[in-house]
């Protein structure tokens, strides 16, 4: 119980009048493998406010992806609750669109444009084909893929596929966009490019995004607020501000200092883990 009161105490209300859009309250998530029942996160609490670029940061095995799946509605917490705009989350829905790390998240049997209109029409955004088309083209333009709208996904590069997935997610105008290490499978240069583009897109509309990563640097660049999680099981270590950090001050002292601080936090008291268990958690 101590841990819970601790974290709740840490969740100090913001100074402004804004209310959190997403509330995660003492959430414990568990899943089964063939032999074990694994606790992925233990009593994790945090609030996401509108326009946040909220990053879940932690080493592998800290349950950050599982947490995102919980928020998306694919898993039910065994303890605690998750509320979006005050309503408890019970199942997956188009008000929280997920962007995955895997390139196969696009439907291979639909073109770039059809992938977006498919989402719009099945997600209840619009039932009008012409309108869906128009929205799709707008977002394709936003992610700089004009000219590729009738291409099938297998013809696109990894970066382009992720752009389509992001366009598809943003076109839905969800309450919160969930991104599960979306750039992890890209090469370094493309990743850098995609981070910049994501920030530019954010400048346009200030959408709310929940971003999972294991890279401290990416967290600082992309995020405005960072939740640091400890591994096995995932527990809240700290919640930090990073809204003043971006690509421009990557080499700066401030940046390096925060980076070092998080690094120490994550590796200072590293728990010795059962090797096999660690492998299972990574899956």
């Amino acid at each position: 119980m101590d841990a819970k009161t601790d974290t709740v105490a840490g969740k100090k209300p913001a100074t402004g009048t804004a209310k959190p859009i997403l509330e995660v309250d003492g959430v414990t998530l568990q899943y089964k493998t063939k032999e074990h029942l694994i606790t992925a996160t233990y009593r994790v609490s945090f609030d996401v406010y509108p326009a946040d670029r909220f990053v879940l940061l932690g080493p592998s095995g800290c349950g950050k992806s599982t947490l995102l799946k919980g928020i998306a509605g694919y898993m039910k917490p065994v303890e605690g609750d998750i509320r979006l705009k005050g309503r408890e989350i019970s199942e997956p829905g188009p008000d929280r669109v997920m962007v995955f790390q895997e390139f196969d998240q696009l439907l291979p049997w639909k073109t770039v444009k059809q992938n977006i209109t498919f989402a719009l029409r099945n997600g209840g955004k619009t039932s009008n084909a012409a309108e869906a088309n128009e929205i799709a083209m707008e977002y394709i333009h936003k992610v700089k893929l004009t000219g590729f709208e009738d291409t099938f996904p297998h013809m696109l590069s990894g970066g382009m596929k992720q752009r389509v997935a992001i366009a598809r997610g943003m076109a839905m105008e969800p309450d919160v966009l969930l991104m599960d290490e979306p750039f992890a499978a890209l090469d370094a240069l493309t990743r850098l490019q995609m981070q910049k583009e994501l920030l530019q897109l954010w400048e346009d509309t200030h959408f709310t995004v929940l971003f999972v990563t294991h890279s401290i640097e990416e967290a600082l660049i992309v995020g405005s607020r960072i939740l640091v999680l400890s591994p096995h099981p995932g527990q809240v270590k700290a919640e930090l501000n990073a809204h003043e950090l971006n690509h421009d001050n990557v080499g700066s002292k401030v940046f390096a200092r925060v980076q070092q601080r998080i690094h120490d936090m994550l590796f200072a008291d590293r728990i010795l883990e059962d090797e096999i268990l660690g492998e299972e958690l990574d899956k």
Partner: peptide, 14 residues
Amino acid sequence: VSQTLRMIGRNYGL
């Protein structure tokens, strides 16, 4: 069928 595609489908409310 990959887990990702399944989740995508359910994400859009199918």
